[in-house]
């Protein structure tokens, strides 16, 4: 990523359009950022801090838990209060073909002609943590467009869904009474990142037992740090007000001075760290002429002259020796 000095005019007009609330400009900018286009950094840079950051609420949970429906219904509640809403819905990229079917809009049809709701579907494109790599950046673009609450829906394939905790302010974990959900949630470490737990499909058999099991698993946590459990039936629009209340309370808790400062600091640090890490790695590898070196070593492995592990170790050693260290203290 280099600064977008090549196309300052285009960047300026995109940025201006987004701040004006133009959905087409926003959508274009999202594509550029998602594709790591040369202009991406300049666009993000020129929009940074221009509008207040919308609270970001992440929704995660096992497949079939009702994430999309809950997001759609919560968006409806926010719209009824006049709140402008951004939605980012992430679906997995096929590891075999690189393609993806992004189907979350199917369950958000009622917002499909509301220009105060901006829904963007993203594919993970190889990212493993349940979100797409640029989710955070797309949320920033939504802020600039005027999103007042941004809802982020993870893949929910039952694998590790931990990125969502870093990318959002509040993490909602959605579970259902269906057997196996609790186990899956524990296995995926979801309970640790849950700031609000939604027990969806609470009209199904087993809801009480599931709630009891959840409470038991939270019992070891100190009073006051146990996430609230909200029962919902999203398809029947039940429990949405309670969810709204729980999210509001969490937001208020975050706003306390003893929390807001350190938390914000940690988020900013994380943001800089990931930008640096990515930029550094790219720049570094490019300067090393990595692709060419890789080609040569690949030939060696194929010819049986070395193993992939040995080749990798040798490369790392060579590159760290050759690289010009600007700071003797390392990382």
């Amino acid at each position: 990523m280099s600064a977008g000095a090549e196309a300052p005019a285009a960047v300026a007009s995109l940025a201006e359009g987004i701040l004006r609330g133009d959905p087409r400009m926003l959508a274009r900018a999202m594509t550029l950022v998602e594709n790591a286009a040369p202009e991406a950094e300049a666009i993000l840079e020129s929009l940074y801090g221009k509008k207040p950051a919308a609270p970001r609420v992440g929704f995660t949970g096992p497949p079939g838990a009702g994430k999309s429906t809950l997001v759609a219904e919560y968006a409806r509640l926010l719209r009824a209060e006049g709140v402008q809403v951004g939605v980012i819905a992430v679906d997995p990229t096929s590891p075999f073909t690189g393609g993806a079917i992004l189907g979350d809009r199917v369950r958000m049809n009622e917002h499909a002609t509301d220009d105060k709701v901006f829904i963007r579907s993203m594919a993970t494109r190889g990212s493993l943590g349940g979100l797409a790599a640029r989710t955070g950046e797309l949320c920033e673009l939504l802020d600039a467009w005027g999103s007042e609450v941004t809802l982020v829906e993870t893949v929910g394939v039952g694998q590790s869904e931990l990125d969502v905790a870093e990318a959002t302010d509040t993490t909602v974990v959605i579970l259902t009474p269906e057997s196996g959900d609790a186990i899956q949630a524990l296995k995926a470490g979801l309970m640790e990142i849950a700031e609000v737990i939604v027990l969806n499909k609470a009209d199904h058999v087993g809801a009480d037992a599931m709630e009891a099991a959840l409470r038991a698993s939270l019992a070891f946590r100190p009073e006051g740090s146990r996430p609230p459990i909200v029962r919902t039936v999203a398809t029947a629009r039940q429990g949405l007000d309670e969810l709204h209340q729980a999210l509001r309370e969490h937001r208020e808790a975050l706003a306390k001075p003893e929390i807001v400062g350190p938390r914000r600091r940690e988020k900013v640090r994380a943001r800089i760290r990931s930008a640096v890490r990515e930029g550094l790695l790219d720049a570094w590898l490019r300067r090393q002429g990595f692709e060419d070196v890789l080609d040569g070593v690949t030939d060696d492995v194929i010819a049986g002259r070395t193993s992939p592990y040995r080749a990798a170790r040798a490369l790392i050693e060579r590159m760290t020796r050759d690289g010009k260290r600007t700071n003797g203290n390392g990382n």
Binding site: T69, I101, R107, N109, T235
Partner: peptide
């Protein structure tokens, strides 16, 4: 009775 939202299955 409300309206139906189909699940997107592929």
């Amino acid at each position: 009775y409300g309206v139906y939202r189909e699940p997107a299955v592929f």
